[in-house]
């Protein structure tokens, strides 16, 4: 099963490799990984999407907690949470297709952020399924390039996770 794990870590050099190395060294999967500073500049948040059965995910959580630079680990899958992903999609645009492409973008509440004579670059945010869905609809027009951030996630509870 897929799990979204949110990790607060010391914002120091080498910490990313300690976390990533733990995953590769113990044969755990990383589907996506996002890192950035939090409100407290000494702390970063990593959002890792991984897959595994309950026993594997329990090991992942425990092993992460064992790292000295890890402050807090939460498996968001277990609680109500919001997920978002950002994608930039560069798609071929033929004059005859323009209207149709724009209407797809409109339906998905995407934005055209760059235009060239033959392409649109679309900014799309949403959960994983939504991003996948627009990619599927745009594919027939010819997608030249896709850049995706991977998932970020936040618990719905009013408490601050920092």
């Amino acid at each position: 099963m897929r799990h979204t794990i949110s990790i607060l870590v010391d914002n120091e050099f080498g910490v990313l490799s300690k976390v990533a190395g733990l995953f590769s060294g113990r044969g755990f999967n990383i589907e996506s990984l996002c890192v950035a500073e939090t409100l407290d500049p000494q702390v970063s948040r990593m959002t890792i999407v991984t897959t595994g059965d309950d026993q594997v995910v329990e090991q992942i959580t425990k092993q992460l907690n064992k790292l000295i630079n890890v402050i807090k680990v939460s498996d968001l899958t277990a609680e109500e949470h919001i997920e978002r992903e950002l994608a930039m999609i560069k798609v071929n645009v033929d004059v005859k297709d323009r209207a149709e492409i724009l209407s797809i973008i409109d339906i998905f509440r995407g934005k055209v952020v760059d235009v060239s004579p033959t392409t649109y670059t679309i900014e799309m945010t949403g959960d994983n399924e939504k991003v996948n869905a627009i990619i599927k609809l745009l594919r027939p027009f010819g997608i030249k390039e896709i850049v995706r951030t991977g998932k970020i996630a936040m618990a719905r509870s009013p408490k601050s996770g920092k």
Partner: peptide, 8 residues
């Protein structure tokens, strides 16, 4: 003492 050892 090490939680990772348990049920590994």
């Amino acid at each position: 003492i090490d939680p990772t050892s348990i049920s590994k």
